[in-house]
Nucleic acid binder design. Structure first.
Lengths: 202, 202, 202, 202
DNA sequence: GCTTAATCGAGACGGTACGTCGCGTCTTACG
DNA sequence: CGTAAGACGCGACGTACCGTCTCGATTAAGC
């Protein structure tokens, strides 16, 4: 009859609940990982009722997705200098991220596992991966433009070749990659140009 | 000597149960995927009691791991030829492994996540990773020995640089790396040594 | 006199809400029965907000009670004639009430159970019982006054003796007492006076 | 294949669980009534897991039914003497039953409410009611046979007329009927037959 | 072949978490 | 103000699997 909330303002309670839940979700993800994350635990931790959580998110996957997207971090801007230094700088930052205990990256394994079970999480995982690769890609693309790297360089593949080993080390060898290993990696992976200008495309 | 059954022959019942369970596990993995795989379902499908399954395997991850390692073990043997070709061959095998629908690789995400929360699983994860890297390491070590690669090459890092991008692609971009991308990867990653003038493009 | 709205006219909105709710309540009672009746459903059906319903009634029992007493209030007025006929008439009305599909009687079991554990509900239960016994008591009291019944008759006990079997039948045997059983009941229960004057008091 | 438990002996664990659950159920029925009885509470009280309860009983109705039937009481045998005395004795026993704190009758309100929710409970309720009426019926039938009561007496109706007021008093007036009210009830309800002139007031 | 002890199936058990429902309270904005 | 709309904390629902644990019944092994 009446009482239709034509208001453009949303109920503050909703936002409050949302926030509490997302905080609790990220905390728990860090503590126990995705697969052992429980809606029940999120409810208990956040002080928000289970039914309210289900009122806002269809399930665990969507909740975690939302948690990641909402609490997304700000990326560092590419530093100046020659390619090798710039790449090394970006990678060093990455390495430190993977080591830091309270960083979003701690949740990576959970994210990987989640992505395996749901297309939504897979999309999120891919998006996050791409976004976090942006600075590196930019450095490489710039280098291609300035001629520091061959014009036919597949910067996507190159970025993966740089980041891959670091991630691999973290995930499987479970050894925190140290910053002083980065130069070797860069040296070994980046194509040597300049005096070697005669490389022909495949 | 004594009453202890020192026999090297194991009880055929055990082997029979094991076999039924592993078959059922692989079947179910193909049908419902890893995350929806249930010990209960494996028991029902295999006709083997739940308690018997738990008698043989500590949990789901180990069961699935065992299922793959036992039934689908296909350690690619190092092929003959120049390094680049041999590396390419190993990587191609790896790429195909990651693409196969019911392969050990499909537990990888679960393994990664599990390793994050239990030392035992971390050990298993590391061991499996190392084992599956053995063929590649062997090829690289051989190449160092024959002089095809510089004597100071860090073959561990090099192996990671080769495998890393593939795994990264699988886990984050969630794009099945194709076999025809392997040559580019090898070309870009393996150091170009000495004269090696006789190399012809693929 | 003062600012207080002493008006004997009540807010028409209240009356409108009340009416809608009571209608919906009775409808739903007929459709799904008492135990499956839901305040939520009443709100949805009536278009009245849940909070409004709770503003007017403490709970389901009171709502249903009110629905019947308000909408179906048909206090049978004592008919004229000899006691036996008048009693029979009242009891027949009662019997029919207990048989009607969506009648107050359907709350009776819930009321009994509730009364067992809450003083408030016990009071309500008692009040309703007394109120619904009023017509019968009046007939009996009148009969005592006119000499149709002995002057020392315990009309309370007598009323219970008349109503008891009917209620008992409804609650335990769960057989809808038929109207044609009433005369037998009356005949058997009411003391025979007149030609049997020699009855001595207890 | 094998392992079929052809044993006629039942698992003792089942019987143990059953017993604990039924005890807890009756206790809770007494304390909170049928409608407020909760499977969850039964589980907590009995120390038996919820899932085990659901393994044995489809739902609350069946559980309560089982509780009642299992814990059925033994009925008192009809005493000797003249009808009035015998009836009075039976009714006195009934009255005491309704007052006793640890008796099945304490649960009558719950039973009534439960009967309203399901045909099974209704059947049970009826059966229990009939069984508990047996002694009284027997006394009345005997009296008809010996001529103490008119041969055309409807003993069923008569029994209800005797029991009805007592139950009514208990359920609605919520007054524990005292044993000394029984004689008046009997006097008022039982038909005065034949000459029987020698009756002296109590 | 005849024990005897290992192994088995069946499935009951105490649990944990699920996702849903309805409760009764409370908040917001409207008329 | 009383209201419609509906968010909220809460508690119970009935289900699905978990991993543990008796149970006999069934074998395979060693006497």
């Amino acid at each position: 009859m009446d009482g239709v909330p034509v208001s453009d303002e949303i109920d503050p309670r909703i936002e409050r609940s949302r926030h509490h839940v997302l905080i609790a979700t990220v905390d728990l993800l860090r503590e126990v990982g995705y697969s052992r994350l429980t809606i029940e635990a999120v409810a208990a931790r956040s002080g928000v009722a289970k039914s309210t959580i289900y009122r806002h998110w269809p399930g665990k996957v969507e909740l975690v997705t939302d948690a990641f997207t909402t609490l997304q971090r700000r990326d560092a801007e590419p530093p100046p200098g020659p390619v090798r230094d710039r790449v090394a700088a970006v990678l060093t930052g990455m390495v430190e991220s993977l080591t830091a205990p309270a960083h979003l990256a701690c949740v990576m394994p959970a994210l990987i596992d989640a992505a395996e079970h749901s297309p939504e999480m897979a999309m999120l995982s891919g998006r996050l991966a791409e976004e976090s690769a942006v600075p590196l890609r930019k450095v490489l693309d710039d280098a291609v433009e300035t001629g520091e790297l061959p014009p036919d360089t597949d910067t996507g593949l190159l970025a993966d070749s740089l980041v891959g080993p670091i991630v691999l080390c973290r995930l499987f060898h479970r050894r925190p990659v140290t910053a002083d290993e980065v130069p070797t990696l860069v040296e070994q992976t980046l194509p040597h140009v300049g005096p070697v200008p005669t490389r022909s495309p495949a």
